[in-house]
Simulated scan of single mutants.
Amino acid sequence: MSARTASIILSAVLVVYFVLLGGRALALFRDGSPIAVALGVGVVLLPVVGVWIVWSTLRFGTRTAELGRRLAAEDGLPDTSDLPRTPSGRVDRSAADAWFETQRAAAEQAPDDWRSWYRLAVAYDVAGDRSRARDAMRKALELAEV
């Protein structure tokens, strides 16, 4: 199953969950007591926050995929196939760190190029730093205006 299919299925499951939560919120509102109404408001806020999280995550994913397609069309995707791997399939830590340094240097030399930030995001990901990978990808998206 592809990541796209999995995210669509999980989003559909969340929609069902949010509808069920909405029913619970209505029951709490109908009760009328201040505590029940306050809990109902809380139950309504959960799906709102959940929808926002799902929307922003899916939007980030589609925008990132678009950048990947653009970079692939330019034959500029980073290639990690020659990096040594551990038996589990992960890139060897020292190799990932060395490759990361080359990508970081390239991003420092071209700070306004979204392509260098995209490659830096991949380097962060290969090195295992997902948080900085997302930040670098956000910078790439900002520069590419996708």
Rank of each mutant, 00 (worst) to 15 (best):
L28G: 08
A96Y: 04
F18E: 06
M1C: 07
R4N: 00
I9T: 08
G40K: 05
W117Y: 07
D79L: 06
S11L: 10
R138L: 14
A36T: 05
E108M: 11
A121Q: 03
V43E: 14
A25C: 12
G61R: 05
L28S: 11
A123C: 06
L21T: 04
Y118I: 07
A133H: 08
G89K: 07
Y17G: 05
S11W: 05
A65Y: 04
S116G: 01
F100G: 03
W117D: 03
A105Y: 09
A98Q: 01
V51Y: 14
A36Y: 02
R132W: 05
A25P: 09
G128V: 08
L120V: 00
R63Q: 12
L20N: 11
R104A: 15
G68L: 06
V43S: 06
G40Q: 03
A105K: 15
D82E: 14
R70W: 07
A72L: 03
D75I: 01
G32Y: 10
R138I: 05
S81D: 15
A136G: 10
R138E: 11
A107Q: 08
Y118H: 15
T80S: 12
S56G: 01
G68H: 03
A27Y: 10
A36K: 12
E108T: 09
V43G: 01
W114I: 00
T5N: 08
S7L: 08
Y17R: 01
A72N: 03
G50F: 02
R24T: 13
W99F: 11
V19M: 11
A38S: 09
L141C: 09
W52E: 10
A136R: 00
V44M: 15
L20A: 12
W55R: 15
R115T: 03
R134Q: 13
A25M: 13
R93D: 11
A107P: 02
R93Q: 13
P111W: 11
R69K: 13
S7F: 00
W99E: 07
L26R: 14
